[in-house]
């Protein structure tokens, strides 16, 4: 009798965590896995006008790998992601190292540095659209003063993408700075003191102590920013609409246009799934590269 009761008690104890977890699991499943599964199913369909959706097998994916515009948008996205994340990391790290010490007005300076991050991306896009405006923009004004000619930054096939990268760097370097600053301030001080006693130079301390010890934070910061940059949309939509030509047509904009302007929902879903796979590959590669270098 006692043994039976004990077993019942064990069962209750064993099932309690599952019961407590169930609402969360169901919620996460409903909010993420279901839509994702629906997207995958949609990617194997087409939606002919006025007819029920039809399964087309791998046709959308076959079209995708032969779609020069999609491949070009992926290339643009990669260039944007690597350039923006790289610059944000270098600048964010530099700022974190510079501002880690105590100094007067540090609270005000640190707070003002994070203002760009607090502005909605659409508003950021509009602010920079004004700055880049060929007629009244600051850049054009400076170019006029220096060279006597105005400059149309967003109409230039060579300048438009760097201009978008600059906007992203302006907005998101503070994020990188905050993460890295928190990481630097949490490092134990003993190894640094020992290195200084042993006469190590500042450069050597940075290279052989700060960087290796900061590596987990760097991985997280790079991953978050790279994933975010890979899915950039708002700024591109507001500033260039993918133009001039296809110079700034990033993959997310192409997915949006394909779904909501061209009503090719199945094809857009296949693009979205391909992007998801690429993002997963991308993040795994970054994580693995950093693990390998430890």
């Amino acid at each position: 009798m006692a043994r039976t009761l004990g077993l019942g008690g064990d069962r209750r104890r064993n099932s309690l965590p599952w019961l407590l977890l169930a609402p969360t699991v169901l919620f996460v499943g409903a909010m993420t896995i279901l839509p994702l599964g629906y997207s995958v199913v949609t990617s194997f369909q087409e939606f002919p006008l006025g007819q029920a959706p039809a399964f087309v097998g791998l046709q959308n994916y076959r079209n995708l790998i032969n779609d020069a515009n999609f491949l070009s948008s992926l290339e643009t996205t990669l260039v944007f992601t690597i350039a923006a994340t790289g610059l944000e990391f270098v600048l964010g790290l530099g700022l974190a190292l510079l501002l880690k010490q105590e100094f007067p007005f540090q609270g005000i300076i640190r707070s003002s540095l994070i203002i760009p991050m607090a502005i909605a991306p659409v508003v950021v896009g509009i602010i920079w659209r004004l700055l880049y405006n060929a007629d009244v923009g600051l850049f054009s004004f400076a170019a006029q003063a220096l060279t006597g000619r105005s400059v149309s930054v967003l109409s230039s096939a060579t300048m438009a993408l760097p201009a978008l990268i600059l906007v992203d760097v302006w907005e998101w370097t503070p994020f990188m700075f905050l993460l890295l600053l928190a990481g630097i301030q949490s490092l134990p001080q003993e190894p640094f003191e020992a290195a200084r006693v042993d006469g190590a130079s500042a450069w050597n301390i940075f290279l052989h102590l700060t960087m290796p010890m900061l590596r987990p934070v760097i991985v997280v910061a790079l991953l978050i920013r790279a994933l975010d940059a890979f899915t950039v949309f708002d700024q591109v939509f507001v500033l260039t609409q993918g133009g001039p030509g296809t110079a700034t047509e990033v993959a997310t904009l192409m997915v949006y246009k394909t779904a909501f302007r061209f009503s090719q929902f199945g094809y857009a879903a296949s693009m979205a799934v391909a992007l998801l796979v690429l993002v997963m590959f991308f993040s795994a590669a970054i994580t693995r590269a950093f693990r390998a270098s430890v």
């Binding site: 405006n133 060929a134 007629d135 054009s140 105005s150 149309s152 967003l154 109409s155 260039t240 133009g243 001039p244």
Partner: peptide, 9 residues
């Protein structure tokens, strides 16, 4: 050619 600068945007 007789439009404002930056008309492409």
């Amino acid at each position: 050619a007789y439009a404002p600068p930056g008309v492409a945007e």
